[in-house]
Nucleic acid binder design. Structure first.
Length: 150
DNA sequence: GCCAACGTTGGC
DNA sequence: GCCAACGTTGGC
């Protein structure tokens, strides 16, 4: 089983939204090749840290799990979608999505400022200067350091 | 709202 | 293939 971290703007889709959902939710709209490649590596059952970005309190809001591996992202083909991509066609869609559900809630949001202070997370792209990667792997070691705060 | 840093585009 | 210009991300 692998661990991941994925960012979402809570104004768009928050961890609470995922918890409220009756069914698995599609994690779509990823339009960066490096992030896309990580989506493709995901397996059903993997856990991920649900990170809130571009908001008043950036940080980890909860834990989700992957319930369906990567498949072509339909929003890339939808001209009405903000994630529409002229590069994509039915025959050849470079973008993909996964399905996720909430795994468990955590006692409090763990702020980015606190994550930056932890030892052992230096290699995590999230805390590296200038990094904008929205989907990234988390090692078991990194996961346990963070999970100790749940 | 500001701005640093990044990824992408497109001219050459 | 280089690189300047541009658009986007995302913390502050």
């Amino acid at each position: 089983m692998n661990y991941w971290l994925m960012k979402s703007e809570p104004d768009e889709f928050s961890f609470a939204d995922l918890q409220r959902a009756a069914q698995p939710c599609r994690w779509d709209g990823v339009r960066n090749y490096q992030a896309r490649n990580f989506l493709r590596s995901m397996q059903s059952g993997d856990l991920f840290l649900f990170y809130h970005s571009s908001c008043a309190e950036p940080g980890i809001a909860g834990v989700g799990k992957i319930v369906h591996e990567a498949y072509p992202d339909p929003t890339a083909l939808d001209p009405q979608s903000p994630y529409f991509s002229a590069k994509a066609s039915n025959e050849k869609n470079p973008w993909c999505a996964v399905d996720v559900s909430a795994a468990h809630s955590i006692a409090r949001l763990i702020p980015l400022t606190e994550l930056r202070q932890l030892n052992g997370l230096e290699a995590l792209a999230l805390v590296q200067k200038g990094s904008r990667l929205s989907v990234m792997p988390v090692t078991a070691e990194q996961w346990h350091i963070i999970a100790a705060l749940f």
